[in-house]
Write a protein that binds this DNA or RNA. Structure first.
Lengths: 110, 110
DNA sequence: AAATTCTATCGTATCTTTACGATTGACTAC
DNA sequence: GTAGTCAATCGTAAAGATACGATAGAATTT
């Protein structure tokens, strides 16, 4: 994304932006939804469900891992992915709080 | 962001991704927080608050307008920006629902 | 050992995002 | 009208994101 000037924002703002990146691409949304609906770890069959190349799916999984919202356990010959409940509830709290700071009555020009 | 294959995802997934983009850059988070904290329309003083050039702030505002989460009213010689309550509550509902689909007990490998 | 399976990574093409200076257009104030 | 203010847009440079084929590494199966 070009060069984001991370330094000039608060840690909180940068973390919110990072968490939001997990949901800011439809493929990652789809992956997260699949991981949840299975209620179990999904491995390479993500590639079958999504119409994306294996390399592309792997790249999205890497991004989700970087953010921390999923983790993968090597379970040869497969890798078992699932939601990281700690970060997931961090996201719940973070977005919940952020979205609640705006009370609907506070709007000024609508 | 390279070329996203929008066609292969559901409308819902694409909309979630779009809404998440509003929060996926710290500058946009900061802008939204400022708009909320003022409880009133903030105009060009956004440029003073953020350490970003006027053109850059304007570009972020344009993106937020495209998503629909803010709207600007021309109030010469200024433009008055504020949260769009309709889209904001859509975001509340959307992320609330999405984040709630994962019950913490459902985790498999943690 | 050889073949198979699965996933990560490399290399690469292309498009998007971020950021800024400069300019333009619209309105206000003198 | 002239000067000044404000915000959008243009043009552009640099870096990140998306996607894929090909390759490599690690483990299982035959």
């Amino acid at each position: 994304m070009g060069v984001t000037k991370t330094e000039i924002f608060t840690e909180q703002q940068n973390r919110i932006a990072d968490l939001a990146k997990a949901f800011s691409h439809p493929a990652r949304v789809a992956i997260l939804q699949l991981l949840i609906s299975r209620k179990a770890c999904v491995c390479g069959d993500l590639v079958d469900e999504l119409e994306l190349a294996q390399a592309t799916v792997s790249q999205h999984l890497k991004e989700l891992k970087r953010i921390g919202i999923i983790h993968g356990e090597i379970n040869p010959p497969r890798v078992c992915y699932c939601i990281n409940p700690v970060v997931w509830s961090e996201a719940q709290k973070t977005f919940g709080t952020l979205l609640d700071t705006f009370a609907l009555s506070e709007s000024c020009c609508n």
